[in-house]
Write a protein that binds this DNA or RNA. Structure first.
Lengths: 160, 160
DNA sequence: CTATATTGACCATCTTTGACTATTATAAAC
DNA sequence: GTTTATAATAGTCAAAGATGGTCAATATAG
């Protein structure tokens, strides 16, 4: 089932296992995977966004490159502030999921916890319009309970 | 005479004989049985629901799949069933917290997970009235993020 | 007759590609 | 040395492809 995009993502993450920064040639990488160069941009956009905790820099022309940098966080409280700011008053499920992935990659939440958070903020959990907090709470809680049992079933293993 | 749905159900259950989890291609399976793809959804909805002890996950697009996950034992899925029933359509924060404590006592969730669930369904997280899912999601997510960092700063300790 | 099953039309989401554009380095011309 | 042409990169965006989801109409089994 592994998709081209997933393979490229993994390839890059392997490269970054040691270093917080990696440079690569877009065209070379595309050739290595036998795909269109713009495919690389797609992977970067969907898996290495700022919300995922990465910054992309690049340069065109001879000797051009694409640089992927894993963002560093100074302090935990600063990081939390930044995240709360990013979330703000409104956030899409996709953006939230990117942030959750980032937290999981950083080891700040376990895979189970990440899944639990996802289940609480999923579109399907937030039934609107809703008349009372109790009704809304039930919807969110139900989703989380199901998630708990999914985790429990897998023997608390962390695969997300 | 065995219905198509029964055959598909059996086929999937055979696949799951060994593993508690199986991934399949909806279209492939439909083709295998010479039926409409949506027939697969029907089978999943009627025979692999949460009530039946299964959880369905899926992904669209290239490399898409349908994943069926079985909960470990009948008693566990029965327990979940009971809980979902108890939650029903509406639940107070107090009742929900009691359920969460019970799950923690049984060791089905860690202390961190319990705290995370509480933070998602707290009165303060469920800001109503609210105009959009994104706004509501932000409120819930913010609460959970704060909880994540509280857990993390406490050294990932699990005290309930 | 009623409950269950089946299908098909239409929708939503994710991925891959290709044509066109933008930028930079290097070599050539002056 | 500056200007100009050419090659070498990378970026953007929209279209096409590849899946799966939903729902209402219809058919079938009991």
């Amino acid at each position: 089932m592994a998709q081209l995009s997933d393979n490229i993502e993994q390839f890059i993450k392997d490269l970054m296992h040691e270093d917080a920064r990696v440079d690569l040639r877009r065209n070379e990488l595309a050739q290595h995977f036998g795909c269109a160069p713009s495919q690389i941009n797609y992977v970067l956009a969907t898996r290495f966004s700022v919300d995922h905790g990465y910054i992309i820099e690049s340069r065109r022309g001879g000797g051009g490159y694409v640089r992927i940098v894993r963002m560093q966080t100074r302090s935990e409280s600063g990081f939390l502030d930044m995240l709360l700011n990013r979330v703000g008053n409104s956030i899409s499920e996709e953006t939230a999921n990117a942030i959750i992935s980032n937290l999981a990659e950083k080891g700040m939440v376990t895979g189970n916890e990440a899944a639990l958070i996802r289940s609480a903020i999923a579109r399907s959990a937030l039934s609107l319009p809703v008349s009372s907090k109790n009704v809304l709470r039930a919807a969110v809680f139900r989703n989380m309970l199901i998630q708990v049992f999914r985790n429990y079933e897998e023997g608390k293993r962390d695969d997300v």
